[in-house]
């Protein structure tokens, strides 16, 4: 996750430098790096999530640490933080008693199936859109004739396409 982040910073700095020199769009290999960078972007995102979830085990809610008068955390003889167990919530105590493992497995399978299906559909639709290419932009219609604050507010959002449609 950290390495991916550093890599993105380096790639962006390099691209900015090349842009200033006006040679960015000649570097085909760098363009390909940015196309493929979609994958590590997601990987970084997901591994950050996993790090947060796994890293806080066995706690769902951390107990607050006991602190010295200067404000730094107290340590016991073994060098461990000192805390009051009753102030936190362990994952094993937080787990729902009424939900069976089978139900949880069922929901994980359901969500996995939904996301895989939607991913495939998304790739299909995206491929169609990109092969089709953009359409010429039409002139904006004049929508400043009605008065009033409500009409002004509504004219702001008077676009008839969703965000995904605007590039059609």
């Amino acid at each position: 996750m950290v390495a991916i982040g550093m890599f993105f910073i380096a790639a962006t700095v390099l691209a900015c430098w090349l842009r200033v020199r006006g040679r960015l769009f000649e570097k085909r290999w760098l363009m390909w790096v940015f196309v493929l960078a979609v994958i590590p972007a997601f990987a970084g995102n997901e591994s950050g999530w996993v790090a947060a979830e796994v890293g806080r085990q066995p706690w769902i809610v951390y107990p607050s640490l006991e602190r010295t008068t200067e404000g730094s955390p107290k340590l016991d003889e073994a060098g461990q933080f000192v805390y009051d167990e009753s102030q936190g919530l362990r994952t094993s105590d937080g787990v729902s008693a009424a939900v069976s493992a089978g139900q949880v497995l069922g929901s994980i399978i359901m969500f996995a199936a939904i996301y895989i299906l939607l991913f495939v559909i998304w790739i299909y639709v995206l491929h169609q859109k990109i092969s089709h290419g953009p359409e010429p932009v039409l002139a904006e219609s004049d929508s400043t004739q009605r008065g009033g604050a409500l009409a002004a507010a509504s004219s702001w959002m008077e676009h008839h396409d969703s965000l995904t449609d605007s590039q059609e």
Binding site: S96, V99, S107, M110, I114, S162
Partner: peptide, 22 residues
């Protein structure tokens, strides 16, 4: 927790309703 399975089914429906519109 009590309505875990019906609520998962509900989420399934609400997801596909949204997606079918889009």
């Amino acid at each position: 927790s009590a309505f875990y399975t019906p609520f998962m089914l509900l989420l399934f429906c609400l997801i596909f309703r949204a997606v079918s519109l889009e």
